[in-house]
Design a protein around this nucleic acid. Structure first.
Length: 484
DNA sequence: TTTTGAGTTGTTCGA
DNA sequence: GTCGAACAACTCAAA
């Protein structure tokens, strides 16, 4: 990677090309540019080419708007320039290099196949003009090619991967945030953020999002501080309780790189709050993100191709849009499933435990192809992430790399009484059932039966499937594709 | 190369 | 209510 430095970068502007790293603190590409001492420009390009980056869903576009808005203010406060452009990122980066006669371009690495192709092409093209192009490690603590088995093959199970990570060099300490940015003094075209139309207008469905989230680096920092201060001490015990507010809610901030895993890890490990088990458990969750990115790196079509190819012959139910829509809109008649789907629709986020339950219900009770669910999550989750979303859906489906999936058919009613025993979560998201006592809230009577619940409960649908029968059907379907 | 132990997150049934 | 066993067979990692 070492290359002779052109001697004439002195005084020439540097470009920091931002992508999934919309932050100033612990941003190695930005720090490298600041250390050069030359004037600089931060550039973000909205590249809609699906060959390069999977186009963001509606929730992701909403977040991106807020994140860029926040970043623009912070950059300006420090004397810097954030330039927004739309188009082919390869073209736009090279164009800006020419406009500025920049001496160097810096960025933090991406790990998707299309992204890597584009980044390599940019690196080559910039270097071909005799300029500096350098990439940095800012998004993952363990880059996929650095954690492999002895024989160079990627790990296929999480625990072995995470053990191997622990044996490599410890992740670095976070880098300080540059207090001053020496922005170039030049006329530069810059798109108006509003012109990208990332926000919903008619209708504006983002009210629940605004209540819940503050996109941008300061919002990320305060979530982390709050988590370390108030939640980490009971993380292990409470993380599976959707009604307990024990999650960090850092996922969208990590997704957009408003905070780095290095920062999160360091803050969590520095905490002396509660037992160490909580901290290692949480850092291991960051490990899942690393593992999922490793899967994506070695399986570029993670969101569309079964990792276990015997699943290609799985007898999915043919797409029944009416049934799928009932799942999407939280009208399945299974209280915990509907609570989760409504939380997702309203706030762009769903508790991890409930994600597994609703996914299992779609795949194993409705026998609908996991890609349908993956796509819905992609569109509606503010943290929709190309590695995490696809890998987790494949995990639930059993088409992913982990083994022994045959018995993993969640019973959503049992999950409900186990993890939301008082029904707090259901009451919050399914108001039709809010008046019911805990004993009756987890399961609704099947159709036709007389209920004692009064009028309010009647607006809530009957279960759209029989859980016992559909479970048996799923196990029979999995039998069909068993490898021999 | 062969062998051995293990594999995020579960459910049901019967005692 | 709680507990242990059964639920299959296979793949993965590492010795």
């Amino acid at each position: 990677m070492e290359q002779p430095r052109p001697t004439d970068t002195h005084g020439r502007p540097s470009i920091v090309w931002l992508r999934d790293d919309l932050r100033l603190a612990d941003n190695p590409a930005l720090s490298a540019a600041v250390d050069e001492g030359n004037p600089l420009v931060l550039l973000f390009v909205l590249d809609d080419n699906p060959e390069v980056v999977r186009p963001r869903g509606a929730a992701g576009r909403w977040w991106l708007h807020g994140s860029l808005h926040s970043l623009g203010e912070r950059v300006a406060e420090r004397g810097g320039r954030l330039i927004l452009r739309r188009g082919d990122a390869f073209v736009e980066v090279l164009k800006l290099v020419e406009e500025l006669d920049a001496g160097a371009v810096f960025w933090n690495r991406r790990y998707g196949a299309g992204e890597r192709t584009q980044d390599s092409a940019v690196k080559r093209a910039v270097r071909d003009t005799g300029r500096v192009a350098e990439s940095f490690q800012g998004t993952l603590m363990y880059e996929p090619w650095t954690v492999t088995r002895e024989d160079g093959q990627p790990y296929g199970v999480y625990s072995a991967f995470w053990r191997a990570c622990a044996k490599t060099a410890e992740p670095r300490d976070p880098l300080a945030e540059p207090q001053k940015l020496n922005g170039v003094d030049a006329e530069l075209a810059c798109d108006a953020l509003d012109s990208w139309e990332l926000l919903p207008t008619a209708p504006d469905w983002a009210g629940g999002f605004r209540e819940e989230w503050t996109p941008g680096e300061p919002g990320a920092q305060s979530r982390l501080e709050e988590f370390v201060r108030e939640r980490i001490a009971r993380y292990s015990g409470q993380r599976d309780r959707p009604g307990a507010e024990a999650s960090s809610r850092l996922s969208p901030h990590l997704r957009f790189g408003e905070i780095s895993p290095f920062q999160v890890r360091a803050a969590v490990l520095a905490s002396r709050n509660g037992a160490a088990e909580n901290r290692s458990k949480f850092v291991a969750e960051l490990g899942w993100r690393e593992f999922n990115y490793s899967l994506l790196f070695f399986n570029p079509n993670l969101d569309s191709e079964n990792m276990r190819r015997n699943f290609d012959g799985f007898p999915w139910n043919r797409a029944d849009s009416a049934i799928l829509e009932k799942w999407q809109h939280g009208q399945t008649g299974i209280p915990l499933v509907d609570a989760g789907m409504r939380q997702l629709w309203h706030s762009g986020w769903m508790h991890n435990r409930v994600r597994m339950v609703v996914a299992s219900f779609l795949i194993k009770n409705l026998l609908i192809d996991w890609r349908e669910g993956e796509q819905w999550f992609w569109d509606t989750l503010v943290d929709a992430d190309p590695a995490n979303n696809a890998a987790n859906w494949q995990w639930v489906a059993g088409s992913g790399v982990d083994s022994a999936p045959f018995f993993r058919v969640f019973n959503p009613v049992l999950q409900s009484s186990k993890f939301d025993p008082q029904g707090d979560y259901i009451r919050r998201w399914v108001p039709e059932l809010a008046h019911l006592p805990a004993k009756q809230i987890h399961e609704r009577p099947a159709g036709g039966e007389v209920t004692l619940d009064g009028a309010a409960a009647d607006s809530y649908p009957r279960p759209i499937v029989d859980l016992k029968a559909t479970r048996a059907a799923a196990l029979a379907a999995f039998d069909q594709i068993k490898s021999h």
